[in-house]
Write a protein that binds this DNA or RNA. Structure first.
Lengths: 123, 123
DNA sequence: AGTCAAACTAGACGCATGTCGAAGCAAACC
DNA sequence: GGTTTGCTTCGACATGCGTCTAGTTTGACT
């Protein structure tokens, strides 16, 4: 039970939300599943964490690399990483002493699509 | 002072955040300005409101059209619309008795870009 | 003026969330 | 085994946020 990738509890919660939000009204159900992801992005520290992780060399970053970049305590960083993990925006894996996080491009791409302008928009 | 479009207090708060979040680390300042927009999208009712408004005929919706679609009180809808307005995601205009809201495609597009995958991503 | 309807504001209430210090776990190293 | 280092969990605290009822404003129509 070591060296196992920790997946988000609800990795496919966003499954059938592929169409832009502006194209047709979101169902209550879809909104309920999309909102937590956006809420997770709604904190400056989490945004920077995600950005840092994603733009790190090799696409993944150790927690120790992240902690130093912020003015908050290590438990706080750990908490924010947990939020990002539970919404499927990042995945974590322990390798020896260190825990590495990487961004889940698929989830980001899906959220991007939801916010995108559908073809033939009048602006 | 009537029939005037009410603009968001900080319409250009997102001005220089055009690059994907995964391309390079977000500055603390950029994150601070982006987060409120994502936080605004982090509520199911606000997501549905935005989606409803954007996909309404003519691209705009009267508040009375929106209120009926939800199980919460009118003041609560008003509160959520205010949040969306203050983050620049929607704009409102009073015409006679009614107030019409429309989605700010530019803001949505910017947020979409921030989450998008930059060219040549390894996935 | 008086009235009515649409929308917003004010104030209050309870739950959620960000933060911390202290304690706990896990892996490596002596 | 004992210790150290990296990271997470626990429990507590203050603040923020979603919701409501009640009251206010704005415009239209007699």
């Amino acid at each position: 039970m070591s060296k196992q990738t920790v997946r988000a509890p609800l990795p496919l919660a966003l499954a059938d939300c592929h169409t832009p939000l502006t194209a047709e009204p979101l169902s209550a159900d879809q909104a309920e599943r999309l909102a937590p992801s956006f809420k997770a992005l709604g904190d400056p520290i989490r945004l920077r964490l995600l950005s840092l992780i994603a733009s790190f060399e090799g696409g993944e970053a150790c927690v120790c690399d992240l902690t130093d970049a912020f003015d908050v305590s290590a438990p706080t960083i750990s908490h924010h990483l947990k939020v990002l993990r539970e919404t499927g925006l990042v995945a974590s894996e322990r390798r020896g002493t260190w825990v590495y996080y990487r961004a889940e491009q698929t989830a980001l791409d899906l959220l991007s699509t939801v916010l995108s302008v559908p073809q033939g928009a009048t602006a």
